[in-house]
Amino acid sequence: MNSSMLSRVADSLYWMSRYLERADHVARQIDVHLTLVPEQATEAARKRRNRLIACLVGEGYPVEAVDSDYDLVHLLTFDEDNSNSIMRCVASARENARQVREQINTQMWEQINQLYLSVQGTSLEWLWQGQPHRFYHSINQDVYRFQGITDSRISRDQGWHFVQLGRYIERSAETADTLNVDFRELYSAALADDAGDQQTYLEWVGLLRGAAAYEAYSKVYMANVQPRFIIEFLLLNPEFPYSVHFGINMVQASLDALGALTDTHKSSRVFRLAGRLRAMLDFGQVDEIMDSGLGSYLLAIQNQSAQIHEAIYQTYINYPIDDKLAA
């Protein structure tokens, strides 16, 4: 059997996985938002909406255009012009899967196809008038099912590792993004309020839920919702699958495995970058991070993740061919 994998195939598997992860994240964030809103003051709800847009669509999006949750649901779920809407993410994931149809098994294809058809078959009105929670929850379930099939059915070959890379690079980026945007605002609000009122408490819980972390967090810290614990948990906890640290560990493990499978030189930049980021999280102390500025720490993580993505492309996918010809 041929052990080498076409770069284009690796690219498609990686992006298939990233887009699904992103769809999952967006669905969870909207779901959490819609359950929080009824208990929120108007102003807080508006702020929250704007934070979501900054996180999930991009900073700089004209938030004035979105002045209701109805608009928000449209923007994040169905908007064809928003490349991060659930619809677009799922369609992109499916398109990538279609490009490598012969590389993935039938169950994976059917699962992704079914997810695509169910999103396509849902209208904004139907969703808004009905039970949004069920819809978003079903998207999460479909993505988990896809990942379950992938994990239980696929050989641990290069393809699987590119799927892993896509999933965890995306996931770490989402978690870091959420912390960056949410934390900045909530933390300063909390300081101003001095103790954190019930509204702020709700927000913290929302942040945890949005990162799929509330239940796991409670197991570790009980109901003691404290900003520094949240940071510690979402950034540095090595056991929680949605933490940045866990994600980077997985990325590094897959990179090591790929290195062995492809005979990549040990000194390759991609390994150094992953190693550096991993060390930064391995030895990270929440107090130091808070003292020296969470913002700059998160920025460093985001930059380094982006560099790892670049380096993966430089090493495996978009490499300049003259280097390889000389080798």
């Binding site: 059997m1 041929n2 994998m5 076409l6 499978l261």
Partner: peptide, 28 residues
Amino acid sequence: RQMGIPLVEGRDLIVHDARVFMRTTSGL
């Protein structure tokens, strides 16, 4: 799949000095 060979598209292939290569994760 039946033949057990890679399915490639034009953009996967490169010609250098009249030889054909495919771009893989382990090089050309």
